[in-house]
Amino acid sequence: MRQLSTHRRHPLAGVLVLLLGLVVAGGLYAAAAPGSARADSAGTDADLVAEGRELYLTGCSSCHGQNGQGILQREGGQYGPSLIGVGAAAVDFQVGTGRMPMAQNSQQAPRKEPFYDAAETEAMAAFVAAEFGPGPAIPGPEYYDLAGVSDEDITEGRELYLANCSACHNAAGIGGALGGGRYAPTLEGVEGVHFAEAMITGPQSMPVFSDEVLTPEDKRNIYASLREIQAEPASGGFDLGRVGPVGEGLAGWVAGIGALVGFAVWIGKHSVRASKQ
């Protein structure tokens, strides 16, 4: 796909770009994306930004505007929000977790298989950071590198998690419901860098947790405790989806009462009769 976009050097008229972008994105992804390895990974920043611009104009500008100003709906709602000042971290999070581009305009952009590969994401992040004003940079390993984390750090992280995160994401990190059909997603399998980016940038409904209030070390501790919760065995057996008493009640009725009523039917059933006397 990049090869295609490099051939199309001259910026075309906006409408054509949008149309082509849709066609390109929809039709050629499957053929082009898997094989398109980056030939020279060491490009200059300017090259990166330029490449990001191409990708942006093709894939993003139809919703976010050519200058990242966002596009308003006629009724006044946002079609795509402004990207002014969102920074590289936001782009890396949204694109790197597959949330952007959205499959459809809906309440929530769900996590899915990323559309762009790592290099393309990097280019777009560089472009947005360079062109749309400064914002949070992609966080470094001090936010999520778990080497050298002590038991005390994990305990502190657990307390911070329960104070700041569990109301939406659930004590076990399986996520939970928000208003209007939105939801806090499960934290299962979230990469450390994306976890840190979400906390810093506050994507979608999620609030921002700034570094001044929750330091990078605090964030790392939360991440460590989350990994701990997800890795620890479900000591009591099958965890029933960890949704709490609703799942337990369902299991009690279906498995427990179901099995016992089955036994009761067996007890009350007439046993086989002999054909001869």
Partner: peptide, 25 residues
């Protein structure tokens, strides 16, 4: 079947809560 894994929820603190706070059925 695991039921009420209290260690996941932590000690009670009136300023903390978890999504999916439900009573038993």
């Amino acid at each position: 079947f695991q039921i009420n894994p209290v260690w996941v929820f932590g000690p009670y603190d009136p300023s903390k809560v978890t999504a999916g706070s439900q009573p038993d059925w």
